[in-house]
Design a protein around this nucleic acid. Structure first.
Length: 662
RNA sequence: GCCCGAGUAGCUCAGUCGGCAGAGCAGCUGUCUUGUAAACAGCAGGUCGCAGGUUCGAUUCCUGUCUCGGGCUCCA
């Protein structure tokens, strides 16, 4: 039999006997690769290792080091989950089970509407480990749709998938439904399925790892409800989420990250550090700010105002409610109504709480005639808005029903807009960096198909301006095709926090629509009237979310410039109380946030209690300090303490920290 | 809004197979405070989320409802 050759990723050729599989190729390259191999990529198509090779193909062997390999590992683990659940719950049926970020899920319909509790997960996981220990092969088979319907006769969701595939094939098109079903089917009207054992098969496009023994670094995480095909009108299924990784170390690292994230949860820290609370009597998504939370907020807002002053913005203030006519003009009643709080009837008029500040700023622009010489006009407001978020979407400070935007609207000429956007991106990044964020993800969202207004040329121009600004700022960005607002394209900027999570904060949106709706005009150099362009911009997004992200970013240990209490003063004994007050008063006069913890309890206990509040500095004062005008400095994160530091020396040090945003 | 799960003291949680509700920490009072992460003693604290129902009796069982958590969706 003639040999064949295949081309490896490095361009080299390798000769194999005819009939060789990808698995043989891996073994031929080396035993290490053979052991690590999960699937193969043949001419750009991911396939099982058992796939036969043909002459001249480009082949690469895929391991768990790559995204594709890890995805396969997760997908295969999902199949093991399905086998375990079907095994343990007679009469249960299964829907779909794709890989997702960090792991996988699988949706089930259990007999009699049974549910899976967290306790059940341990038992399911144990069964999964048995299946993995049995090292069952993933055997690929293909069949016609008719055969598939017979194979999965007892499983209505699988049958529905097969029927949809058959329909799509009949219609002779791939289309949207085929995309959705990509995980389960081949796509040409035939189906593929994988057999693990005599009793377990699963409809699947594949590929899969060679056998269940290749899996094992996984953990079932949680259960949730989910609709079949994401449709609230369809049956509700039990979803089981799991995480899966290439190695024990990766799994442990992931679980560690989750534990860290939980420790940093701003809802927990907000309570422990007495920053913010959500009294049930207020209703979901509405927070009250306690003195310590409000102290941090004030620093955030003061800094924001200062930067805006320096950046050529003018502060404005607008009311919280407005008559329905305003919202009709702005289009919010047409486009945003379901997110607005309901109307209030008053003196024969209808008022709505504001979900956005924009229309008010339009009215300020319109209050007098504007010249091109006035532009750009940059209005800034810490504007509190109310949005009727779905109750299930509300999440601490990250997603509230009442929140304050650091909102601005910039009115420019068309010619000025590109430069204005470019400087805006730089401004946004500069402010975010000042709060300790240095890693950003940006998205450029373009014109939504169908539901948008304006001329193509305008959209093109604005999108290019946004793109140029991103490039000028040196920001990598993803394209969110069709993700723009109905009135214009936008840039969203996410920050990455200390443990690598992404949070959406800033948004910069170009708007052609509101100037039209409000009939905004300025007089140009030519003496004629022109429409300005509006740039909407929220920098921190909302002060609430920004604060929540800061809490999680710093794990509650705010840098000195933000900390609600910058230094606590602890007298060693009651006799040093007066000196402690003197020290505190002096520091307050210097502009620092200071509190005294009186000597009503032993020093060690007070130090512990104060340390748990994560303050930047704990100052201890005793006999020596009273005698010499010094303090004992215990800095957060340092080992031990420094004795006999002159008060002025400490004040300078704290001032330097604040200055440097440490 | 929908699906799944959970609501017991300020917090973390135990408990009641339907019969006077518990711990630790926090709090308060007293004694004690003497140099860097938990002094000692005592006290107080709960309509067992809320409203109905079943029952001699409900925190416990049933129904509804509210809130929270995890998802879906959406977003600052």
């Amino acid at each position: 039999m003639a040999d064949i050759f295949v081309i490896l990723p490095d361009g080299s050729r390798r000769t194999l006997p005819a009939g060789a599989t990808a698995c043989d190729l891996a073994a031929d390259i080396g035993p290490g690769l053979a052991k690590a191999a999960l699937i193969a990529d043949i001419d750009g198509v991911a396939v099982d290792l058992s796939a036969p090779l043909a002459d001249g193909q480009q082949v690469s062997i895929i391991t768990a080091d790559s995204d594709a390999g890890l995805e396969t590992l997760r997908h295969s683990t999902a199949h093991v989950l399905a086998q375990a659940v079907l095994d343990m719950y007679p009469g249960a049926t299964y829907a779909i089970g794709p890989p997702i970020e960090h792991g996988f899920y699988y949706d089930f319909d259990l007999p009699g509407g049974a549910t899976i509790s967290d306790e059940d997960l341990a038992a399911i996981e144990a069964r999964m480990r048995e299946i993995i220990a049995a090292d069952q092969p993933f055997e690929r088979h293909e069949a016609s749709a008719a055969e598939g319907l017979e194979l999965f006769a007892a499983h209505p969701y699988k049958r529905e998938i097969i029927e949809t595939v058959a329909l799509a094939a009949d219609a002779g098109k791939g289309g949207q439904s085929a995309d959705e079903l990509a995980e389960e089917v081949v796509g040409d009207g035939r189906i593929s399925y994988y057999r693990n054992s005599d009793s377990f098969i699963d409809l699947c496009r594949g590929p899969h790892v060679p056998s269940t023994g290749r899996l094992g670094h996984f953990k079932l995480m949680s259960t949730a409800g989910a609709y079949w095909r994401r449709d609230a009108g369809r049956p509700s299924l039990q979803r089981v989420y799991g995480t899966a990784w290439a190695s024990r170390q990766d799994l442990a690292a992931h679980l560690h990250r989750l534990a860290e994230a939980e420790k940093r949860d701003h809802r927990r820290l907000a309570r422990e550090l007495d920053l913010v609370s959500w009294p049930a009597d207020l209703g979901p998504g509405l927070a009250v700010w306690h003195p310590k939370g409000a102290a941090v907020r004030r620093v955030i807002e003061d800094y924001s105002r200062r930067r805006h002053d320096e950046g050529g913005y003018e502060s404005v203030v607008t009311p919280h409610i407005a008559r329905s006519e305003l919202w009709e003009t702005s289009g919010h009643l047409d486009f945003y109504r379901e997110s607005m709080y309901p109307a209030m009837e008053l003196d024969g008029a209808t008022y709505y709480p504001k979900p956005m500040n924009c229309p008010f700023h339009m009215l300020i622009f319109k209050s007098r005639q504007r010249s091109y010489r006035d532009l750009p006009i940059r209005m800034f407001e810490l504007g509190t808005v109310y949005r009727y978020e779905l109750s299930g979407a509300v999440h601490g400070l990250m997603r509230s029903r009442g929140f304050t935007q650091d909102d601005s609207h910039i009115f420019t000429t068309r010619e000025q807009a590109p430069a204005e956007i470019a400087s805006l991106v730089a401004f946004v990044l500069s402010v975010l960096r000042a709060f300790g964020f240095d890693s950003f993800d940006a998205r450029l969202a373009t014109r939504p198909v169908g539901k948008s207004v304006g001329e193509d040329a305008e959209w093109e121009l604005a999108t290019e301006a946004l793109r140029d600004a991103l490039q000028a700022a040196g920001l990598d960005y993803e394209l969110d095709d069709g993700g723009g607002a109905f009135y214009g394209p936008k840039i969203d900027i996410d920050v990455q926090d200390a443990i690598g999570r992404s949070w959406q904060l800033s948004t910069i949106q170009v708007d052609f629509q509101l100037p039209e709706r409000f009939g905004l005009e300025y007089v140009g150099a030519d003496g004629k009237r022109h429409r300005p362009v509006i740039i909407h911009r929220a920098l921190m997004g909302s002060i609430e979310r920004f604060f929540g992200v800061l809490i999680e970013h710093y794990s509650g240990a705010f840098p000195a410039w933000l900390a609600p209490v910058q230094a606590a003063v602890l007298p060693v004994a009651a006799a040093h109380g007066d000196y402690a007050e003197e020290v505190a008063t002096h520091m307050r006069n210097e502009g620092f946030r200071t509190e005294v913890v009186e000597a009503q309890e032993p020093l060690g206990r007070r130090i512990r209690a104060t340390k748990l509040q994560k303050l930047p500095y704990v100052l201890v004062v005793g006999d020596d300090d009273v005698a010499h005008g010094t303090v004992g400095v215990n800095a957060r994160g340092s080992d031990g303490d420094e004795r006999g530091v002159p008060l002025e020396t400490f004040v300078s040090r704290l001032a330097a920290d604040v200055q440097a945003h440490r």
